[in-house]
């Protein structure tokens, strides 16, 4: 496939590109900002050109815009997957292995954006974290990045324990200390398992709290971000506790 000058309809077009029969794809590709195709000059090109099928130059974009989605948190994960598959079929380097070097580079760049965007958006937690980051909101000390940073600098990580967990966390730490000193006997194992179950139940409740915050955000309440930060911080604290228990139990 060689480069064609602008304005000439490329005869080497991929027939399936024209059909556009995949409804999920049209949503995903449709709310992006259309531009002129470098290859055939069609004015409605998005990630790729609907008329000639050619990939378009990659440009920096946020993950929501990449999928043509509004910056909202409740999203149809099945539709996101369909969009991911449909765009993969159009953008993947496999499709451009005989194309010009320029198109191969764009395809590589766009597909990595697509994969990064899909990976971030399909997971409810990373989707929320990503939106908060886009909104310029810092997560507290328990966030993964912060944990890594603290570990890197050798500083003791600040542990702001969620108030309702103070008592339980204290007891758990006693148990974990005991386990480290004298090993895990049957009793201790039972206690730890019970605590783990309780923590997992709390984590599930947090999912609901998070969803509640999403609804507020999606309907225009920008104050919902504070709630999300709170839930995520408590959640990551809980996750750390569960991880500590798992370490001891294994």
């Amino acid at each position: 496939m060689s480069e064609k000058s602008t304005g000439v309809v490329n005869s080497g077009l991929k027939p399936e590109a024209k059909k556009g029969s995949d409804s999920a794809l049209q949503v995903m590709n449709g709310e992006h900002h259309p531009h002129q195709c470098w290859s055939c000059g069609d004015m409605r090109a998005e990630h790729f050109c609907g008329a000639c099928g050619h990939v378009q130059p990659a440009e920096p974009t946020d993950f929501f815009s990449f999928f043509g989605l509004p910056r909202k948190l409740e999203l149809d994960e099945a539709a996101l997957e369909r969009g991911f598959y449909a765009l993969s079929r159009k953008l993947h380097p496999d499709v451009y292995s005989r194309a010009s070097a320029k198109e191969q580079a764009w395809s590589l760049e766009k597909t990595s954006q697509l994969n990064d965007a899909y990976r971030t958006l399909k997971d409810p937690i990373s989707r929320t974290e990503y939106l908060l980051m886009l909104e310029g909101i810092q997560l507290d000390e328990q966030s993964k990045k912060a944990t890594e940073k603290a570990r890197a600098s050798g500083a003791e990580k600040k542990q702001s324990v969620p108030p309702e967990l103070l008592e339980e966390a204290f007891e758990l730490n006693m148990m974990l200390e005991e386990a480290k000193m004298g090993g895990v006997d049957k009793d201790l194992r039972a206690q730890l398992t019970a605590t783990r179950e309780d923590l997992t139940a709390r984590l599930n409740t947090m999912q609901d709290e998070l969803r509640g915050a999403w609804k507020r955000w999606d309907s225009g309440d920008s104050g919902a971000t504070a709630r999300m930060v709170d839930v995520l911080n408590r959640r990551s604290y809980l996750c750390n506790l569960v991880r500590d228990i798992d370490e001891v139990l294994s």
Partner: peptide
């Protein structure tokens, strides 16, 4: 490699490729 000789992960295993950070 971050300060103190620890690993700061920038692309998780099992990420679909091409992937970037």
């Amino acid at each position: 490699e971050a300060l103190g000789g620890v690993t700061a992960v920038i692309i998780q295993r099992n990420s679909t490729i091409p992937a970037s950070a």
